[in-house]
Simulated scan of single mutants.
Amino acid sequence: MSNDIAYPVFRTPDLALALSTARRLIEFGRCEYSEVSVYAEFSSVAEVRRVAKVLPEECFQGQVDYEEFDGVPLAERPALVVGVQGPGLPVDPAAYEGRLPVECGLSELPVGSIEDTFTAAIGANVGWINWESLRWPDAPEVGFHGESKHAEVTLLFNTHTRELDEPADDHTVLVHVRSAVFGGVQTREPYAHWLAEQVGLTVIGPGQRL
């Protein structure tokens, strides 16, 4: 089993510029099987409702301690606990007590189908867009074969980390490659540098693993 590592290659407070930069990198590795996923966290009821109007097809789910529902059939659990699309969100504010932040997301969508709308809706909330199933080309000049399994690009909104635990006032583009550590060294880091350089970018920080 192998894992990925993601390197930051661009950072800006400009949402449109962050998205367009990510797209430049995506197009370098995009293929017919490429897909996109989105995810965000909302810390207020007002933000949940606002985004649900823009992205009604998203699945919204609140925080839950699953022990509180031991023995409770799935059909009898609150919609916000199970996960519900925008039109099914609770109207009563009390339903959100203890459930914030509310998470939302969609996965395995066609590239280009949701990115603009999601970026316009994100506001000050943390989240990401992730493009996967890309195909990085061979880089013989630096001694690397191409990459498919871990060929991804991530755009982080309002955070610097993949864990979304470091809020920020700007947005970060990450390029993913396979993690390969030998002697304590990430031997494929030069490949990430090479990929960034192909679209006029450069690695600007250490790699991030989940």
Rank of each mutant, 00 (worst) to 15 (best):
C104R: 13
A52W: 09
I5M: 04
S2T: 15
P206G: 03
E163N: 07
L155R: 05
T161K: 14
P140A: 02
V111G: 02
E147L: 04
A22Y: 06
Q61G: 10
S107P: 03
I26P: 03
A121C: 05
Y66R: 12
E97Y: 01
E35T: 12
E41T: 13
E41S: 12
P73H: 09
L15E: 07
G83A: 09
A46V: 14
E41R: 15
E35M: 13
V153I: 14
Y7N: 10
Y96Q: 04
P8R: 04
Y39R: 15
R23Y: 02
W194P: 02
S2F: 05
A180Q: 14
I122Q: 04
V199P: 05
P73Y: 08
T117A: 15
F118M: 03
F69G: 05
Y96N: 03
R162V: 12
E67K: 13
R50M: 08
A124L: 10
E97T: 10
R24D: 08
L210G: 13
I204R: 03
V9K: 09
V153N: 08
E32W: 02
F28Q: 13
L100K: 02
H150M: 11
R77E: 01
V173N: 05
L15R: 15
T202H: 14
P73W: 09
E35D: 09
L19R: 14
T172Q: 15
L74Y: 15
Y96G: 03
A94Y: 00
V177P: 03
E97S: 10
A16V: 06
G29K: 04
E152Q: 14
A79D: 14
A6V: 00
S34G: 08
G62M: 01
H145A: 15
F60C: 02
L100S: 02
G98A: 00
D165E: 10
Q85D: 10
C59D: 03
V36E: 04
T154F: 12
V9E: 06
T21F: 01
V185N: 03
R11F: 01
S107A: 14
E147G: 03
S133F: 10
E27T: 05
A196C: 06
S133A: 14
C31F: 00
S148D: 12
G123W: 07
E67F: 12
V54M: 14
E32R: 15
L15G: 03
G207W: 01
S37E: 13
A139T: 07
A121I: 03
G83H: 08
D169K: 12
Q63K: 14
E67T: 13
S113Y: 09
L134D: 07
G183N: 11
I26M: 09
P93N: 03
C59T: 15
E132H: 14
A52C: 11
L210V: 01
T202A: 15
Q61T: 14
R49I: 05
H160M: 01
N130L: 11
Q208R: 06
L100H: 04
G183W: 00
L89C: 05
V48E: 04
W136C: 12
L55N: 08
V84R: 09
Y33P: 00
F182M: 06
A196D: 08
L210N: 12
V185T: 11
K53F: 00
C59F: 11
N125F: 07
T202M: 10
L100Y: 06
A120L: 05
I5A: 04
E141Y: 04
A192R: 02
A196Q: 05
G105W: 08
L195N: 02
V203E: 10
S2E: 11
R135N: 13
F144I: 05
A75T: 07
H150W: 15
K149L: 13
W131A: 07
